[in-house]
Structures are given as C-alpha cells and as structure tokens.
Design a protein around this nucleic acid. Structure first.
Length: 274
DNA sequence: ACGAGGTCCTGCGAGC
DNA sequence: TGCTCGCAGGACCTCG
C-alpha cells in the first residue's frame, strides 16, 4: 500500500530526524529483503556513513549517504519509526532493519509481509535504477502530451498502465482507482483509446488525488502508519476504493468491483466512468 | 517488444 | 472450536 503519498509522508518525517546523523551500528534481522548486496557487504557499506539527505523517488525512500544510496521500497507493509534515545527495538515486532544513530536514537524499518526491498547502491547504480522509472506525476514539467504519448503506446487497460512504474512513478492500486473515478474514465479502457482530453483530465485527477493524499498523510487501510505511528487520513476521502456495492458519490449507482485488471481489486462506477 | 501470469511473504477473515 | 483456503498487492521474473 505505501504508494507515492505514503512514502512522501515517511520521507518528510524522517528528514529532520536523520539528517546529518551518522549510522553507528546496523542490525539486520531479515536478509531476504536485500536485493543487490550480501549481508556482509550491506553491513560493511553502511558502517559509519552519514545521512546527507532523504528523498522520495516513485515509491522508494532514498537515503543519500554521500558515496552510497540506501534505497528502501516499502512494498505492502514496510514502515519507519525512530526510537527515542537509548531505547532498543523490541524483538519479534517485524523489525527488518535497525540502525543506531550518532545521537543515540534508532532508525527502525519494519515490514510484516516483507514484500519490501532494500538496496545499497553506488551513485551510478542509483542513476541507472532511477532512469528506468517513469516521470514523477507531481513534477510540473510533466505535460499531458508526454503523459498521453506514453499511454498511446499500450493497448493494456489504462489502470494497469498508470500503475506501471516504468511509465509513471508512484501510482499504485488505491490512487489509480481514485484518479480514474475523478477523471470519469473506465479503468478497463485500453490506454491507447484515450483522447487528448482524457490525458489532460487523467493527469489532472492523478495530481489532485496524490496532492490531497499527501496533505492527509496517506491512506491507512490496515497496516500503514506514519513515522510517528499515527494512521493516515485519506481513507476518509476515498471515492471508490473499498466501497464496492456502496452508492457512487456522484450518481448513487452501486459501485462495481472486479479483479480482472492486473489481478488487483478494481472498483468503479459503471455510469460515471466511460 | 509486448503481454499474461506466476512468485515472494504474512495476517486475516470466510467457510466448513 | 479449530482448521484450511483464498485474498490482499508492488515489483520482479519467466514464458509465449
């Protein structure tokens, strides 16, 4: 579930807590999350590095450690917490990675299902990784023409295409459902059947939904928590996700659910979305 | 080159 | 009551 707004919320909270801090010790509880380094190379690489910056790219939290990037993709259930001075992370609470910082606080990454991934990259490895991800939807330099050109290259369902990280960064199942409702577009419509007007409306809807979700600090369905442990608030504002059978907020027709698009739960209004 | 479908991983809720 | 089963899904992988 951590999509763009949830990772953005995590990174914003993390930034003041970890900027300028040195990673003194690292405890890695589950090494199956490591995707490009061995356990020993990972621990060796992190030792005594300083956090220069924390940024979000797509659904990744990216820690700039100077000569290295620590890239965390929280997957479905990954989340960060900072523990107060001296307090150690309890065992058996799904902690994957715990880093003791120079100020005696701990930066803890938990992940119940461990679909999340952790990478340690050199700057050029990160540049390659990032270049394979599509444009950021909130980047004002992304125009409806470029977005539309990408959609026109696929006959797949538009919902699947906007969730494809190679075409557009950061949109997952929840916000794809929401944005398609706001834009009035049937999620199963082939991406190459959309008009210029559709491109404009869909990009606008994606931006509006993501922006509102960031302001609400994300959507909590079950697991997601902000870095302070609070649930997000955007679940109060969902138009369609999780509302199958309930009335459409525009026309009151019962919302329809299917799993036929990319095996992900899809909810839409058959009357408003064409 | 593209698209369809399987895989990882655990908790939860439905159903027997 | 206690068990099994299917579903939740982001991103990567393989196969056709």
């Amino acid at each position: 579930v951590p999509e763009l707004p949830e990772v953005e919320t995590m990174v914003r909270a993390l930034r003041p807590a970890v900027l300028g801090q040195t990673i003194v010790r690292t405890r890695l509880v589950h090494e199956d999350v490591l995707k490009n380094r061995t356990r020993s190379a990972f621990l060796r690489g992190l030792r005594q590095t300083t956090v220069v910056d924390v940024q979000r790219r797509a659904k990744n939290a990216v820690f700039d450690l100077g000569q290295l990037r620590l890239v965390v993709q929280p997957g479905m259930t990954g989340s960060f917490t900072t523990l107060p001075r001296g307090e150690a992370a309890p065992i058996g609470d799904y902690t994957v990675l715990s880093m003791a910082l120079g100020n005696d606080k701990h930066l803890v990454y938990r992940d119940v299902r461990r679909l999340g991934r952790i990478y340690l990259m050199k700057p050029d490895e990160w540049a390659t990784f990032s270049s394979r991800i599509g444009p950021e939807p909130l980047d004002p330099t992304l125009g409806a023409e470029e977005f539309g050109a990408s959609l026109r290259r696929s006959r797949q369902a538009v919902k699947k295409v906007i969730m494809d990280q190679r075409r557009l960064a950061g949109v997952g199942n929840i916000y794809a459902n929401e944005a398609l409702f706001v834009a009035g577009i049937d999620p199963s419509k082939p991406a190459n059947a959309l008009t210029r007007d559709d491109h404009e409306r869909l990009l606008g809807a994606i931006r509006r939904i993501l922006g509102a979700a960031i302001r609400a600090e994300g959507t909590t369905i079950r697991d997601y928590r902000t870095t302070s442990g609070q649930p997000g608030n955007f679940q109060m504002q969902l138009f369609v996700y999780g509302r199958e059978g309930e009335p459409c907020l525009d026309c009151e027709a019962p919302l329809v659910a299917t799993h036929t698009i990319d095996a992900r739960s899809t909810v839409f209004c058959f009357r408003c979305q064409t």
